[in-house]
Lab assay of single mutants.
Amino acid sequence: SEFSSRSGYGEYVQQTLQPGMRVRMLDDYEEISAGDEGEFRQSNNGIPPVQVFWQSTGRTYWVHWHMLEILGP
């Protein structure tokens, strides 16, 4: 990996993601499973900070930056 740390990767995702971009989950996290795909909606200063609309659940759920792989527009 070109990223030395999880936080470095998270910063990359945070700087790159734009609303509407497709993402894939890298880790299991509460209701969301690794491999689930969705659409980035928004972020804020909460914890976790990233709101994604997940195809698997049909609704939005908040996750962490480093848990997401960017699939593209």
Rank of each mutant, 00 (worst) to 15 (best):
S1A: 11
F3P: 08
F3L: 12
F3C: 13
F3M: 09
S4V: 12
S5M: 12
R6N: 11
R6K: 12
S7Q: 13
S7D: 04
G8Q: 15
Y9M: 10
Y9C: 09
G10L: 03
G10D: 06
G10H: 05
E11T: 10
E11Q: 09
Y12R: 04
Y12Q: 10
Y12V: 03
Q14G: 06
Q14I: 09
Q14C: 07
Q14R: 14
Q14H: 05
Q15T: 11
Q15G: 12
Q18K: 13
P19R: 09
G20A: 04
G20W: 07
G20Q: 02
M21S: 04
M21A: 08
R22M: 09
R22P: 02
V23C: 01
R24N: 02
R24W: 02
M25C: 03
L26P: 01
L26F: 07
D27N: 12
D28W: 00
D28N: 09
D28I: 05
D28Y: 05
Y29N: 03
Y29M: 08
E31R: 09
I32F: 00
I32Q: 01
I32N: 06
I32G: 03
I32R: 01
G35H: 00
G35D: 00
G35Q: 03
D36A: 08
E37S: 02
E37P: 00
G38A: 00
G38Q: 00
G38T: 00
E39Q: 07
E39Y: 04
F40L: 02
F40T: 05
R41H: 03
R41Q: 13
R41M: 14
R41K: 15
R41A: 03
Q42T: 11
Q42S: 13
Q42H: 05
Q42G: 15
S43C: 06
N44S: 15
N45Q: 12
N45R: 10
G46Y: 05
G46D: 07
I47P: 02
I47W: 09
I47S: 14
P48Q: 05
P49R: 00
P49E: 11
P49V: 00
V50I: 06
Q51P: 05
V52W: 14
F53K: 09
F53A: 09
W54L: 10
W54T: 01
Q55T: 13
Q55K: 11
S56M: 05
S56D: 01
S56I: 01
S56C: 04
T57E: 08
T57C: 11
G58S: 06
R59P: 00
R59H: 14
Y61M: 14
Y61S: 15
W62M: 11
W62T: 03
W62Y: 08
W62S: 15
V63H: 03
H64G: 06
H64F: 10
W65Q: 03
H66Y: 09
H66M: 03
H66A: 12
H66P: 01
M67H: 15
L68F: 06
L68V: 05
E69G: 05
E69L: 04
E69T: 06
E69K: 10
E69M: 04
I70F: 03
I70Q: 01
I70A: 02
L71S: 09
L71M: 14
L71Q: 00
G72H: 12
G72K: 13
G72R: 13
G72T: 10
